[in-house]
């Protein structure tokens, strides 16, 4: 999109916004418009030159900064922003798909209301563009209660499945939901471990939002799970054939060391034998554990079991 287009969209929102929030600070206005303070002040300068013919003093937009606060005295009928364009509505509706199964009826009704406030001439174009993005990521039902718990800052309890054992009851302060490679995770403070932990949503059962409030720490941003970056006592060296190498490089980037034969080698965390064997098997023979010997043996056992040996 052209610069002029982007600027016009911003300015047609800016004047009504200040009209609605007289005395908004320069800082807050810049944040609302996602622009720097300097750029905002320049745009405010431009707006003072905007008006309608015959350009008498009262025909100009009267917008000014006083004591670092912004006011508009004459808005020249720019008291509300323009309606959503087809592109804006389509992008919003497509992003809403991210939470579709979890959001349920609220999403459906929100989208209906959104369509109602589009200019009639835009509706068809909106529907056409909406079909051009498909972002449904199989959002699990668990997103709904967990999103609510994060917004309302309430602890949650759930049963967490463990491989080879009965599910464990957990009580967690939910900080953040994270989707990575199609897998949804909850990051939060685990009372049992007395530490921040990442939980997979597909292993949670019986999620209950309690009425115990908590204050989230300001920096609760979860790291994306990466087996090549987690520090464990034992590391496992895995080699990939040239066939699998391009895919492994895409996932591991610089952590995938190139080999002379066109393959790559990655050093991954060795703390979960179960994860490692499943991962190596998922390459169907294009991956090989080099060391340690115990990990090689585990993969061999798993391969034998899969053909009933």
């Amino acid at each position: 999109m052209s610069n002029v287009h982007e600027r016009l969209r911003r300015l047609l929102f800016l004047v009504p916004y200040v009209s609605k929030h007289p005395g908004v600070t320069v800082e807050a206005l810049a944040k609302a418009l996602n622009m720097s303070r300097e750029d905002l002040l320049e745009e405010l300068d431009l707006l003072t030159c905007v008006g309608r013919p015959p350009f008498n003093p009262d025909d100009y937009i009267d917008i000014y900064v006083d004591n670092d606060r912004v006011y508009v005295d004459l808005d020249q009928r720019l008291f509300a922003p323009p309606r959503l364009t087809a592109g804006e509505a389509a992008a919003l509706a497509a992003s809403a798909e991210l939470l579709r199964p979890a959001a349920g009826d609220a999403l459906q009704s929100a989208l209906q209301k959104l369509e109602r406030i589009l200019p009639p001439s835009t509706r068809e174009r909106y529907r056409e563009m909406y079909r051009k993005i498909d972002a449904s990521t199989e959002a699990p039902q668990a997103l709904a209660p967990l999103t609510r718990a994060i917004i309302e800052r309430l602890e949650v309890t759930f049963a967490y499945a463990r491989p080879g054992g009965p599910p464990e009851p957990r009580r967690v302060r939910p900080y953040e939901l994270l989707s990575h490679r199609g897998q949804w995770y909850l990051q939060g403070f685990d009372h049992m471990r007395q530490d921040a932990r990442l939980f997979r949503l597909d292993r949670m059962e019986d999620i209950t939002v309690t009425d115990t409030p908590f204050l989230p720490p300001p920096d609760a941003r979860a790291d994306v799970p990466n087996p090549a970056r987690s520090r464990t006592e034992v590391s496992v060296r895995v080699r990939f054939t040239p066939v699998a190498a391009p895919y492994v490089k895409e996932r591991f980037g610089r952590d995938a060391r190139p080999l002379a034969d066109g393959g790559v080698e990655v050093l991954v965390a060795g703390d979960s034998e179960r994860w490692l064997t499943q991962w190596v098997l998922s390459f169907g023979g294009e991956a090989q554990v080099v060391e340690p010997e115990s990990a090689r043996a585990a993969v061999a056992r798993a391969a034998r079991a899969s053909v009933g040996l």
Binding site: I150, E176, S179, R181, A222
Partner: peptide, 8 residues
């Protein structure tokens, strides 16, 4: 809300 989507 703190909901995030990371790209694979």
């Amino acid at each position: 809300p703190r909901v995030r989507m990371e790209l694979g």
